[in-house]
Design a protein around this nucleic acid. Sequence first.
DNA 1: CAACATGCTGCACATATGAGCATTGCCTCC
DNA 2: GGAGGCAATGCTCATATGTGCAGCATGTTG
Lengths: 323, 323
Amino acid sequence: MAAAAPASDETRLMLRAAQLYYRLNLTQDEVGRRLGVSRFKVGRLLERALRESAVRIEIVHPAARLVALEDALVERFGLGGAVVVDVPATGLAGDDEPLARERVAAAAAARLAGLRPGGAIGVSWGRTMLELAAHLRPGWTSATEIVQLNGAISRSARPTRAQEVVERFGTTTGAGIRLMAAPAIVGSAELRRALEDDAAVGETLAAARAARTAVFGMGVLGADSVHVASGYLDDVDVAALAGAGAVGDILGRFLTIEGRIALPALDARTVGLPLEDLRAKPLTVGLAAGAGRGPVALAALRAGCLRELVADEATAAWVLAHG
Amino acid sequence: MAAAAPASDETRLMLRAAQLYYRLNLTQDEVGRRLGVSRFKVGRLLERALRESAVRIEIVHPAARLVALEDALVERFGLGGAVVVDVPATGLAGDDEPLARERVAAAAAARLAGLRPGGAIGVSWGRTMLELAAHLRPGWTSATEIVQLNGAISRSARPTRAQEVVERFGTTTGAGIRLMAAPAIVGSAELRRALEDDAAVGETLAAARAARTAVFGMGVLGADSVHVASGYLDDVDVAALAGAGAVGDILGRFLTIEGRIALPALDARTVGLPLEDLRAKPLTVGLAAGAGRGPVALAALRAGCLRELVADEATAAWVLAHG
DNA sequence: CAACATGCTGCACATATGAGCATTGCCTCC
DNA sequence: GGAGGCAATGCTCATATGTGCAGCATGTTG
């Protein structure tokens, strides 16, 4: 009797059908005619080919992995949307961060233009937000007011340029602006309360609470943190935060990787929109750019503070790997 | 201004659509709903993805390359069908030929059973044909008569076993048999004519001419040729054939790679069905197994003597590369 | 500024495909 | 030899997809 064929007739028929259907783009009916079988059989052969992975369909576009990360983020964390950008390596060690910020900021500007949030928009400050502000195109949306979400008056030699962020948002939309005339973090909870009772700060805070949209960056806890550089945090605070498991901040509020306030005592000294108010907003857009932002992005996601995330590929991959 | 995005929004949309459609198997309508575009646009995005090769569909089954070779042979040479088998390497140098013969013979037996030729079937002889005969299953078709197509009486110590081939064809189909009682090649054209005028040979030849189906193997010109081993050809003949560019034979008739009779004088001494009668048959099945069969297979194809080809992968690839 | 070219969109309609089901033929186990 | 699965086939009908075309927006040129 005949030796067992390496590939049965049925399998060959399947492969031939796959060739005709997928390569030559014949209809199942035409394939059937040419192979002398019914179109139903062709359909079943193709189904089998797919099931047995004799035919592989893959998406090979270089940007596909980014899109896959976006989808995974949206799926995993129930987001409204996510944008993941790739950052061409500069080749210079450790110098990819400015480029990542630039890419993420540009993508965020485009995303915001697509979302076209109306009414009042709350914004934070920081390097990434400054870059975002620089990428906004005039008329990108028709917001009525831009509100600073957290305290920003620098007390160090190095200014935060927080005001520039708000101004640029305002000039590109034709909206009025509202600054938060207070430091990001003050010496005591009592002082914070006193500031918030002051009309200038209090009214901005109320407006921040009322804004339906918030846009903010994420900071890492470390030597190059803007809060350290701006003099809001001293070595004792940083050590305490590190001890409490803080990984970074949003709106000046430091979170553990679980998404909880790391040091409630410090949080009580922080001027600006509280996390629960941020969580309540229908649209919150967070930007995470640069190595090391993974943990704080994950914290913000777990805290429920993000509806939209714009991040570089490394950050997105880290979040998905660890979240 | 925003830096040129690495992938435009439209491209991302395309990739997202491709992901949803090809990976998650959503319908175009569902993809459209989820992406906020019409199903028509989804269709066009997918079309573009295919056109720009952002999505690659490949047939990865190990036997797919064989099927591709078959299709290419059919296409290139206008065949009715082709079967290409793969031959697992034995690991023993130079010893793959018996295995190749076995595989090709088994495949040819299956193919013949699929074709179910009726009426009279003409057959040649040789090692591959003997193997084929051994693989025929009883009742594989309902032929009425099996006719030997060319002379086969051995004049050397080593028998050709040509009769076994015809007998096995006969017993598996219940058909009567008709042998050609003559040597394959005789000393002169006159003797050949005289033999053909003899009733025994002449009637078989007439039957061979009348048969609608012919099945034959292909021989290579060389030291291990059956014609040399069987004593039909001497060194002078072999040298003359080589000088005339002969690459091998079908039905004892030697061809150049262009598919023409290599030595008309020798052909006139060859007893059996002439090539033009073979060419005229509606169904001709040729078997080519083993290294070095490429040239003669190509010659037979160019001679117009093949409607169906059964070959091993190496032979098929050689033919396609050189034809 | 009009007039035209161009490309993108969504529609109606024709075609292609998939799902469920009845039928067939085949094999097994009495 | 016959009854009962069991897988494979082809059918009908609902759904999904492709095609040609008209409408609309945008940009371009005289």
